[in-house]
């Protein structure tokens, strides 16, 4: 990828006014869909994404069921009105691929052996997209899974880092994704300290790669704090912290 114009100004501000190690505003609302077993709405900058989790429930068609564990089915979908120009509602190659990587980034956190012959359905619907929607989708899906009361080893938090003007920046937005040098989405289990998703689009030197990964993980930890506080607020309200 060759960058055609500068995306960081002389004051060190990025195209949306952030500095290089600043995340966009993140807000998560838990339990917004009554019919789902667990759900979350995430606002990640201009991204607006709903995640809904159903299950564990019976698998239909039955031949898909696994006798020793649960199957996870994930659907990432962008609504036709989520982008500048209308997006066809039919699942595209990109969406099918993102559905797969999101499923694979969530599976390590779930204790699937606890629900044999069942299925967990994860629906991620992008209402408004502004770059980094797979990371925001994973973050929201993880909150929705916890809200659904599915046994999990850890939460999954996701954040991207990348290269813009040869500088490593955190939480790439749409412009930086399209015009910048590199984009690296990372999903991370914050307590187990394990990476469940690592993709890289663009070119980075080994040193840049290491810095980029460290920055992305730092972003994930910040995202985790927001996931945590949103779940705590829904379930325990004002009664926060320890209780003896």
């Amino acid at each position: 990828m060759v960058q055609s114009r500068s995306l960081i100004d002389e004051k060190g501000k990025r195209s949306d006014g952030r500095i290089i190690d600043e995340l966009r505003q993140i807000k998560i609302n838990v339990g917004i869909i009554r019919n789902a077993d667990g759900s979350a709405l995430i606002e990640f900058g201009k991204n607006k994404i709903i995640a809904a989790v159903y299950g564990p429930r019976e698998v239909h068609p039955k031949h898909m069921a696994l006798s020793d564990r649960c199957v996870v089915r994930c659907r990432y979908h962008m609504s036709p009105f989520s982008t500048d120009t209308r997006k066809s509602p039919a699942p595209s190659r990109r969406e099918t691929e993102i559905s797969k990587v999101i499923r694979e980034s969530l599976e390590p956190a779930l204790i699937l052996e606890d629900y044999p012959r069942a299925a967990i359905d994860v629906f991620i619907e992008v209402l408004q997209a502004d770059g980094g929607s797979r990371c925001a989708g994973i973050t929201a899906a993880s909150v929705a899974l916890a809200d659904a009361g599915i046994n999990m080893r850890d939460m999954v938090s996701a954040c991207a880092a990348g290269k813009v003007d040869d500088k490593i920046v955190i939480d790439i937005n749409d412009t930086e994704d399209k015009e910048g040098g590199a984009d690296m989405p990372v999903a991370f289990m914050p307590n187990l300290k394990k990476i469940t998703l690592l993709q890289l689009d663009g070119e980075l030197t080994p040193d840049q790669f290491n810095t980029c990964l460290d920055e992305a993980i730092r972003g994930c930890m910040k995202v985790y704090e927001i996931q945590r506080s949103s779940l705590m607020e829904k379930y325990f309200g004002d009664e926060k912290g320890l209780k003896e």
Partner: peptide
């Protein structure tokens, strides 16, 4: 008995 509020991944 010791009690506290937790989410998945928290140390009990």
């Amino acid at each position: 008995v010791k009690r506290k509020y937790v989410i998945p991944g928290d140390i009990v």
